[in-house]
């Protein structure tokens, strides 16, 4: 226990200030009223869905929880079920084999059903494109509010995308 405490004290607080939203990332008009935006800004629940990614985007989404970005410190949490989520964070081109599951998850998500499509694949299908096995971009399968470019996007870019999605109209 002493070792653990010593290490915690030595490490100190690493959390950095969060970035600002960027309205240029919107692909649909903002839908949140100011009051709702402020509520979500303090307690946002995200359900992450890998719709067919190469797992590179997941690696950077994991990084959001590290002490530098400290997502939980901003009041943002990942949920285990879309039923508890305000926002879906969707990675990858949508694999044909995931099409039905992605649609179902979207249907289960309560209002406001915000969707952030992550990475070049989420935006356009990326290098995988469209084929018998890939439905391409996320917007081909469910409505998308905000996109986050990058392959994979950096944690900071992801954070900007998420904060943009919950900013008011």
């Amino acid at each position: 226990m002493y070792q653990i405490l010593k290490q915690i004290v030595k490490t100190g607080i690493k959390t950095e200030a969060p970035p600002q939203p960027d309205q240029a990332l919107r692909v649909a008009a903002a839908r949140l009223e100011d009051a709702m935006s402020r509520t979500l800004g303090r307690a946002l629940v995200i359900r992450q869905i890998d719709a067919g990614s190469c797992n590179g985007c997941e690696a950077e989404i994991h990084a959001l929880s590290n002490p530098y970005y400290n997502l939980e410190g901003l009041g943002i949490k990942f949920a285990a079920s879309p039923k508890h989520a305000d926002l879906l964070l969707v990675t990858g081109p949508v694999a044909k084999n995931m099409e039905v599951a992605v649609k179902r998850a979207y249907e289960c998500t309560p209002h406001p059903k915000l969707v952030v499509a992550v990475g070049d694949c989420g935006i356009s299908g990326g290098i995988f494109g469209e084929s018998y096995a890939s439905c391409g971009r996320v917007a081909n399968v469910i409505p998308v509010d905000v996109v986050v470019p990058g392959c994979p996007p950096t944690p900071e870019a992801l954070l900007i995308g998420i904060l943009t999605a919950i900013s008011a109209k």
């Binding site: 890998d50 067919g52 990614s53 990858g92 081109p93 694999a95 044909k96 084999n97 995931m98 599951a101 290098i127 995988f128 494109g129 084929s131 018998y132 096995a133 890939s134």
Partner: peptide
């Protein structure tokens, strides 16, 4: 498995 099959080898 096979859920994320995206046709890489054909691509």
């Amino acid at each position: 498995f096979g859920w994320t099959h995206k046709g890489i080898e054909k691509r």
